[in-house]
Simulated scan of single mutants.
Amino acid sequence: MKAFDWQRMALDKVPVDFLGEVALRSIYTFVLVFIFLKITGRRGVRQMSLFEVLIILTLGSAAGDVAFYDDVPMLPVLVVFISLALLYRLVMWMMSRSEKLEDILEGKPVVVIENGELAWEKLNAENLTEFEFFMELRLRGVEQLGQVRLAIMETNGQVSVYFYPDDQVKKGLTILPKYCNERFKVIPEHDDYACVRCSAVRQMETGDKLICPRCGHPEWSKASRATRIT
């Protein structure tokens, strides 16, 4: 095989006029995916459940094959799309009548903050680090966890946040990026400090060097008293 063979790299063994067929196949699969998304009534991937994302990935695989391979006929792909659309409708109907099936396929909402404290074990069970989760909260205007009465990770990956009134905000872990938030292994002065992993708040004395009894992490930051600015 010759290196940098531009004919092989560009077209391989297919004729130039096959590019027109690729364009037609691409439009064909685009229309099928568009119709499927219209059927589901979804506006974006973040609004989709795990089951729906799996359906879309399967459609994408079928669409990619028929768009680029000359030996993949177009009619069987149409059957794939119709079959998946019918499967989707059937599963949605079954889930509307079975809460257990809905939990299996869609998952359950998970409480990840309660009374200003992070449920970090549940967060890790969802394969999401606290730092990724904190980014989601910052986008919702949260500066420190004591502002949050309740936060729920929904089945579509979005976070529902319920806030304390300003006069009820607690001291909590600041969730600003690391470079905006000094961390300590040896406590510099008497104050309230929050574990940077699990958000547990403790009053500590100058010179204290404490491993968090809740999660075993050695780093602390000063607990924030900030209220929300709306």
Rank of each mutant, 00 (worst) to 15 (best):
M1C: 09
M1V: 09
K2W: 05
A3N: 11
W6F: 08
W6N: 10
W6M: 06
M9D: 05
K13N: 15
V14P: 07
V22P: 01
V22Y: 05
R25V: 04
S26P: 09
S26L: 11
I27L: 14
Y28R: 07
T29F: 03
V31L: 15
L37Q: 06
K38R: 10
K38C: 02
K38Y: 04
G41R: 02
G41S: 06
R43S: 12
V45Y: 02
L50Q: 10
L50R: 14
V53T: 13
L54R: 08
I55E: 07
L59A: 06
A62I: 03
G64E: 04
F68N: 13
Y69R: 15
Y69P: 09
D71S: 14
P76L: 02
V77F: 09
L78V: 03
L78W: 05
F81H: 01
L87E: 08
L90F: 10
V91L: 13
W93T: 02
W93S: 12
W93I: 08
W93M: 13
M95H: 07
M95P: 03
S96A: 15
S98T: 02
I104A: 09
E106N: 15
E106H: 14
G107Y: 01
G107N: 09
K108E: 14
K108G: 06
V111A: 14
E114Q: 12
G116T: 00
E117D: 07
L118I: 04
L118S: 05
W120G: 03
E121P: 03
K122H: 08
N124T: 01
A125M: 13
A125P: 10
N127V: 08
F131S: 13
M135T: 14
M135I: 13
E136W: 04
E136H: 11
L137Q: 00
G141N: 01
E143A: 13
Q144H: 08
L145H: 03
G146Y: 05
G146F: 05
V148I: 08
I152A: 04
M153D: 07
E154R: 07
T155Q: 06
N156W: 05
N156C: 11
Q158R: 14
V159W: 04
S160P: 05
V161C: 08
D166G: 07
D166I: 13
D167C: 08
D167Q: 12
Q168A: 12
L176H: 14
K178P: 11
Y179P: 10
N181P: 04
P188F: 00
P188Q: 00
P188S: 05
E189M: 09
Y193L: 00
C195T: 00
S199G: 03
S199P: 01
A200T: 11
A200D: 11
Q203M: 11
T206N: 12
G207M: 03
K209G: 11
K209N: 12
K209P: 03
I211L: 14
C212Y: 05
R214H: 08
G216L: 00
P218W: 00
S221Q: 04
S221K: 01
A223I: 01
R225F: 09
R228N: 07
T230D: 15
